[in-house]
Design a protein around this nucleic acid. Structure first.
Lengths: 226, 226
DNA sequence: AAGTTTTTTAAGAAGTTTTTCAGCAGATCG
DNA sequence: CGATCTGCTGAAAAACTTCTTAAAAAACTT
């Protein structure tokens, strides 16, 4: 769930951000109306929390511009003003809900939940190299049509290679980063895991292989396309 | 557009009715909670305007009974009470908006417009994945002809999966979003709930299962169609 | 205030991952 | 040409994670 906060009062913005992140939302924050429009058009948010009084472009204008541009993201208006006139304008312009400051965090969360309840969202993060793609959320490694699930340690090892696709990774580096400094893991542990991963690469039929550099470490290698 | 007004104060009820009819809505009015439930079940309204304090059955109960019965009509709660606790309960029970008396007619019209506007567009009252369909208002999970009622926590957990059908959801994410940041829920709480949900999925005979990715989290998985 | 449902806690069983170990194969080197 | 070193892999053992169930506690309902 991605939420965009548009609020120029930085301390309030940060507070809301922290609150929502604690609840598992992914939150972006911007501090003026123009950036708000840019961000909202550039990416699919599930909800926009929008202050009414903003630098550069006020909240009403932001809503109007977004709706005009067919951005249908639910909008929760947030403001200090309490006159009915503003409430009406807010809802008529196309905001979906309206809250006046100061507000209770519980109430904010309840309203956010009500507005985000209806949208779905998928965020997939991958690390790619040659024909390989590693889904960082699920530790699933894919090549073409095939997939394999990696175990936790396999995942940790392969991630290090994919972060440094051209580098030779020293065995000690792997031990420290995957098993930890204090661990008494030996080279053989690494060898076994390299072996596990190689087996999965073979299964996937990937062009990528892991090459041993004698006495130093391992490196990813992409086979020539023939 | 059909609207049901549930308000025991007859003069107020009549005033709202007249106001809305002037704007072209078709309006029914009832004066207690029991009739409200009867009417709302018996006919498809586009919106219910519901007073909180009612004879026979209070507004919260009316919402609960309707949602339990799969009636997904938007509800605008109307009440003199102003404490946040009530607002939160109202929104959590399944009301879509909340207004405190006394209110301005302009504001009422604006909120009514906002809520009925949504009906015209696509309202998703269910979260669907493969052969599963979760009614978001009633927490009833269906697969084909069969249904099961989910408990609150089961519902919260499953919702997170259905919002992110392809993602692996980390155990910590589930804890934070279902039990809260401050809670001392452990992995075992999650395990037990996953187990409850799996049992219900088995009962429904769904193709969907919840797969554990060791040390990482859980993910929905759809069985191959053979 | 009793009964019902939901949630939490706890503990053994079941299942996976990780580690260990032994044997093999190819280099390396005197 | 052996002897030694380095790296690879399979299989068994150990360690750890997760599942399921049952029972206790808490929260709602009536």
């Amino acid at each position: 769930m991605q939420i965009l906060i548009v609020e120029d009062e930085v301390s309030l913005s940060k507070a809301i951000k922290r609150l929502l992140e604690q609840k598992g939302y992914f939150v972006d924050a911007v501090y003026d109306g123009l950036s708000a429009v840019d961000y909202a058009k550039g990416m699919e948010y599930d909800l926009i929390i929008l202050d009414l009084m903003l630098p550069k472009l006020d909240g009403f204008e932001v809503v109007r511009l977004l709706r005009k541009d067919n951005v249908g993201t639910p909008i929760l208006m947030l403001t200090a003003r309490t006159t009915t006139r503003d409430k009406v304008t807010g809802l008529n312009t196309g905001a979906d809900d309206y809250m006046t400051k100061p507000f209770d965090t519980e109430e904010l969360l309840a309203r956010v939940a009500a507005l985000t309840r209806r949208t779905g969202e998928v965020i997939v993060n991958t690390l790619d190299y040659a024909d390989l793609s590693l889904n960082v959320n699920s530790a699933v490694l894919s090549c073409g049509e095939k997939n394999v699930q990696l175990s936790h340690k396999e995942f940790e090892v392969l991630k290090i290679f994919l972060y440094n696709p051209t580098m030779t990774v020293m065995t000690d580096t792997l031990i420290v980063r995957v098993w930890g400094v204090e661990s008494d893991a030996t080279d053989n542990n690494v060898e076994v895991y390299i072996s596990f991963i190689r087996k999965k690469l073979r299964f996937l039929g990937s062009r990528v292989s892991i090459r041993k550099i004698q006495k130093i470490g391992y490196r990813l290698e992409e086979a020539e396309t023939c």
